[in-house]
Write a protein that binds this DNA or RNA. Structure first.
Length: 754
DNA sequence: GAGTGGATAATTTTT
DNA sequence: TTATCCACTC
């Protein structure tokens, strides 16, 4: 193996390899044939990839522009670029490091016309595509009960991931249901085309189609990219696999096969639900017969106890290429277990433990992460953290870009960039209210169908629309005129933040929010301000990198960001505790990790219990979660957990039982099993954090006095102004600041004393 | 065409 | 428990 190593006299070279172990070095300097790096969690995958990129450029003389590195998130791409720049200097700027989707958008932008699109195409996320699918299903007169658009959307997405076009889908359909799906697929695709829009799956599929249909385009990319690197290869789907295969290609004339290097861990494949297939990594050696495989099993992240637990869990998965992680970081602390009475108790334990860790071991909030299976689980932690003044940040959940006002604002921007974008156009046609309701929209739609023109063109010619009320028509004309005026800003390359400002101002969107009485609208204004800040920041970063920052680029950026892209780095002061789902946690690491809600039915999720394949994916998810921890790992569950108001009693997660007992230190265990667990009653002694007295009579009513601080489930923080009445009729007048003063019946009001 | 209220459904996971 | 949809009224 030592022959793989470069001459130690080459100083630049040894510099690049500093700190790498033998297999890692081998992976970095390996030249020639396709290379598969099978790497366990925490084995320095990204580091190896980064060093390989630097090595290619500096030691092997590859020009940075000949490189295409594909990462899983934009954040990972940014970090790789940064680290490579540290190793080799500013020339790193000209290499292509991006996600699959960003790379495809870039290719599609420059070749869009070949596919019948214009460069300014819109990118539809899953919410947009579902909206469009709903429109399609309505057009096909499908009963939404029997044919839910959501399921159609998923099936179409699966087809695209498999590179099956609608004709092929129709050809292979046997049942009536399948034919209906194929029909919807065809219409959906037509509507996307006429809206000059692509959905997420199109980005990959159309790129593949493009490269396959136009050999000269493929050749130009193949000539350019002599090296292709793919991170997280286990999470690629079929379309992405084909894309890579096309770009690597066999040697053709003067163009050699590209040097391919992929990194992955089949144990960390957690995106099968979205089409990812482990096949790609398991069969790499068949796909590329001259491939070399290098296995990295040493883990540099976690203590041995944590790894042993992770190994024990993942080894329960059958048919897995055996791989055992090891560490020389020492055994480390035992894994701490905790069984809470309910989810509030569990969250309280987590919060208290974080405080303790800070006091005793100097752990800062930003060193701590809390993971859960579903986004909804973040709520109880937020409640407890707010009450105990613990700084935190939720990654994901109701995501920033999914908020109504943000989507509205972006819909306006998209319309300006691409007026054919029907989904966005219909979203904001009557927002803010312009008196253009369903009736009026129908009239325009009829016109558009009759004249075979797009919705936008029909809107322009709305005076021809049959049966359109005069008032609606005037409003529509005003709307078209407004967009025409705003369009001028786009044509003159006005920076996106300024366009956004003009949109919010001239459409009256902002003033409607300002005059609104709904307290939620205040937050909406703040969110829009935040969006403007995002736009400004985007302009600045682009300017410092000498990249264009027009509206198109901004929209593209906004469409393709992932949640993981916004995770704080935490170098500012103590930072904040990070809360996220297990999926979002992939690729990250934290000194302290809390894995919560370890209950059968929650994690593994109830919908995976009867399918062995899905259960295995849940187990890999557990493996991902466990291996995020560097030093300390906490596993917790709750005896009772309330979903939709009703308490559920869940058994311990099977994953907990797969961990050898000697690795675990149970701080608090479940009481001895009840003779009949289904009759188990909620804990008698409500913790301080349990909700205050509710409808159940006999419970003491909250004892409040003027001056007390309280929180209300919907009004937030408030101060008690006055109290009156006794027992069931006790009332309090509470000042909730901007929401105003409210009189509350304490027996029923969802308030807690602070 | 817009606002109200009651019934009803919903929670996997996301580039 | 909350969010969304639909029917009904103004």
């Amino acid at each position: 193996m030592s022959t793989l190593f470069p001459d130690p006299a080459d100083e630049a070279e040894s510099d690049l390899l500093t700190g790498l172990n033998d297999p890692q070095r081998a992976a970095v300097v390996h030249a020639g044939t396709p290379l598969l790096i099978v790497a366990g969690a925490g084995s320095g995958k990204t580091r190896v990839l980064t060093h390989r990129v630097a090595h290619l450029i500096r030691a092997r003389g590859v020009r940075p522009s000949e490189l295409l590195a594909i990462t899983f998130t934009n954040k990972a791409a940014g970090e790789m670029k940064e680290r490579v720049a540290e190793l080799i200097g500013p020339q790193a700027k000209s290499m292509w490091v991006s996600t699959f989707h960003s790379a495809c958008v870039r290719i599609l932008r420059s070749e869009a016309d070949r596919l019948g699109y214009t460069k300014s195409f819109s990118i539809y996320d899953s919410a947009d595509s579902q909206r469009l699918m709903t429109m399609v299903c309505r057009e096909l007169d499908l009963d939404p009960k029997r044919y839910p658009p959501r399921s159609f959307s998923n099936q179409v997405s699966n087809f695209k991931n498999e590179l099956i076009d609608y004709e092929a889908a129709a050809a292979q359909a046997t049942s009536h249901q399948e034919q209906t799906v194929a029909q919807a697929y065809a219409l959906y695709q037509r509507r996307l085309r006429s809206a000059n829009a692509m959905d997420f799956d199109d980005l990959i599929m159309l790129t593949v189609n493009l490269l396959q249909a136009f050999p000269e385009v493929l050749q130009s990319y193949r000539r350019r990219f002599g090296h292709i690197l793919v991170d997280e290869y286990q999470d690629t789907n079929h379309a992405q696999y084909v894309l890579v295969r096309e770009l690597v290609g066999p040697a053709v004339g003067p163009i050699p096969q590209a040097e391919l290097c992929v990194v992955g861990d089949s144990d960390q494949s957690i995106y099968a639900f979205r089409g990812a297939t482990i096949r790609n990594i398991l069969q790499f050696e068949q796909d590329y017969p001259n491939a070399t495989t290098i296995v990295l099993e040493q883990n540099y992240r976690s203590t041995q106890n944590i790894l042993s637990a992770a190994n024990a869990v993942i080894s329960q998965n059958p048919n897995r290429p055996p791989k055992t992680l090891w560490s020389n970081a020492g055994a480390g602390a035992q894994i701490v277990g905790y069984v809470g009475d309910d989810e509030h108790d569990e969250a309280r334990f987590v919060a208290e433990e974080i405080v303790e860790l800070g006091r005793n071991e100097g752990i800062r909030p930003c060193d701590v992460a809390i993971f859960y299976r579903t986004n909804a689980a973040s709520r109880v932690f937020e409640e407890v953290f707010i009450r105990s003044d613990m700084p935190y940040r939720v990654v994901g959940g109701v995501r920033f870009y999914e908020r109504k006002e943000i989507r509205d604002a972006l819909a306006y921007l998209r319309i300006l960039a691409n007026p054919q974008d029907e989904v966005s156009l219909r979203r904001i046609l009557n927002v803010p209210k312009r008196g253009i309701g369903d009736k009026a929209q129908e009239a325009v739609e009829t016109l558009s169908r009759r004249e075979r023109i797009t919705f936008w063109e029909a809107l322009r010619r709305c005076d021809e629309a049959p049966g359109l009320a005069t008032r609606a028509r005037t409003q529509m004309q005003a709307f078209v005129e407004l967009l025409d005026v705003l369009q001028i800003l786009v044509e003159s390359q006005t920076p996106p933040a300024e366009i956004l400002e003009a949109v919010l101002d001239q459409t009256g969107y902002l003033s409607e929010l300002r005059t609104s009485l709904d307290p939620q609208d205040e937050t909406r204004i703040e969110n829009l301000a935040e969006l403007e800040a995002v736009a400004r920041e985007f302009e600045e970063t682009a300017a410092s990198n000498d990249e264009p920052a027009t509206l198109f680029e901004f929209l593209e950026r906004v469409s393709l960001v992932a949640d993981a892209d916004s995770i704080p780095n935490g170098d500012d002061g103590g930072g904040v505790v990070t809360l996220m789902t297990l999926h979002t946690a992939k690729g990250l690491e934290f000194p302290v990790v809390f894995l919560t809600a370890m209950e059968d039915g929650v994690f593994p999720h109830i919908r995976s219990l009867d399918d062995p394949a899905e259960l295995q994916e849940e187990r890999r998810l557990a493996y991902v979660g466990l291996t995020r921890a560097r030093q300390r790992l906490y596993l917790s569950r709750a005896v009772s957990r309330s979903t939709w108001g009703a308490p559920n009693y869940n058994l311990a997660s099977r994953f907990l039982e797969e961990i050898p007992t000697e690795l675990l230190d149970w701080r608090r265990e479940a009481e001895v099993a009840h003779s009949d667990r289904w009759k188990a009653v909620p804990p008698r002694t409500p913790s301080v954090f349990a909700p205050a007295a509710r409808r159940s009579s006999g419970q003491p009513v909250l004892d409040l006095a003027p001056g007390d601080r309280v929180t209300h489930d919907s009004f937030g923080l408030g101060t008690v102004v006055a109290v009156s009445g006794e027992g069931d009729r006790a009332q309090a007048t509470v000042d909730f600041g901007s929401t105003g003063e409210k009189r509350l019946l304490l027996r029923y009001a969802p308030v807690q004393k602070l």
